[in-house]
């Protein structure tokens, strides 16, 4: 009687082994990806670009109905508040007229002083607008996806809502850009207290109120002080408003952002005429400033 040839390993067993091996391999890839993210590798940027470009058009389709619903809600909300808004605006207008006269006088005075001192003003910033098409899909992070590609914007540029800074460009693909909001833990922006010119770094902490860090303990900072960009490092123009000091407790300074994210449909991206490479200069400056403190 002939004996049947029994294979050493069954095909089904081999499949199980391969499946387990691939799982181990995927775990290793995940760990490697985290490590590469830490060093901000070019490969990671490329992965972001590819995924954003593939999934971006889907997000644009999904965004449309949400935007329509939001517009309808805003329309009725605005109508219900039309009288009180009108009263507020009238009062504000009176104050603005007084301020306008003061500004004109100061402008003339400023021009005269600039001429006297041979002062070279910084480059004029230009703006470009972009539409928000997605928000963060994660509770641990605060980001936006906007419809604008690398032809117009680059990493590090500052992003504004209606009147104040809301974040900076983190990643750019062919047609989409990822914006890190000032509240995100990755966000670090050099700022200054408008009233006292005390410098610091506005550091996001994933809450609604980012912290003002690297300020002297004896610095003159009060609740309600306006926080603006300092322009240190050269990536951001100076004097752009971000928020105001909302509380000072045990040396921790919390800043409330001015921008009303719930009303922002389009963002403005500020181009200060500097390239992304200058970000290194900015981080170096920030580091040296921190060391000095």
């Amino acid at each position: 009687m002939r004996r049947r040839n029994v294979p050493l390993i069954k095909v089904s067993d081999l499949k199980v082994v391969l499946r387990r091996l691939s799982a181990v391999l995927l775990f290793i890839i995940a760990f490697m990806t985290i490590l590469l993210s830490k060093v901000d590798s070019v490969a990671i940027e490329a992965v972001h670009k590819v995924v954003m470009d593939i999934t971006g058009p889907v997000m644009q389709v999904v965004e449309f109905p949400s935007r329509v619903i939001h517009r309808i809600y805003t329309y009725f909300y605005d109508i219900s508040h039309i009288y009180s808004d009108n009263q507020e605006l009238r009062a504000e207008n009176k104050q603005m007229l007084i301020l306008q006269n003061k500004v004109r006088t100061l402008e003339v005075e400023n021009q005269l002083l600039e001429r006297l001192l041979n002062y070279v003003p910084p480059a004029e910033a230009t703006f470009i607008s972009a539409k928000i098409i997605a928000e963060s899909g994660d509770n641990f992070t605060n980001m936006l996806l906007v419809y604008i590609g690398d032809e117009y914007v680059q990493k590090g540029q500052i992003v504004m809502g209606d009147e104040s800074v809301i974040g900076r460009i983190d990643k750019v693909s062919g047609h989409y850009a990822k914006v890190i909001l000032v509240t995100d833990i990755n966000s670090k922006i050099p700022v200054v207290i408008e009233r006292t010119r005390v410098r610091g770094i506005l550091s996001g902490n994933n809450t609604e109120t980012p912290s003002l860090i690297f300020t002297r303990s004896s610095a003159d900072i009060q609740e309600g002080d306006v926080v603006v960009t300092s322009g240190v490092g050269g990536m951001f123009p100076s004097g752009l408003p971000i928020g105001f000091v909302s509380s000072i407790k045990n040396g921790e300074i919390a800043v409330e952002t001015m921008a009303d994210i719930s009303r922002v449909e389009y963002v403005r991206i500020v181009d200060y005429g500097l390239s992304a490479e200058d970000e290194n200069l900015q981080s170096e400056l920030m580091e040296s400033e921190n060391n000095a403190r």
Partner: peptide, 10 residues
């Protein structure tokens, strides 16, 4: 999820 959040890739 990583691409649609600002958390580090991975």
């Amino acid at each position: 999820m990583d691409v649609y959040s600002s958390s580090p890739l991975g």
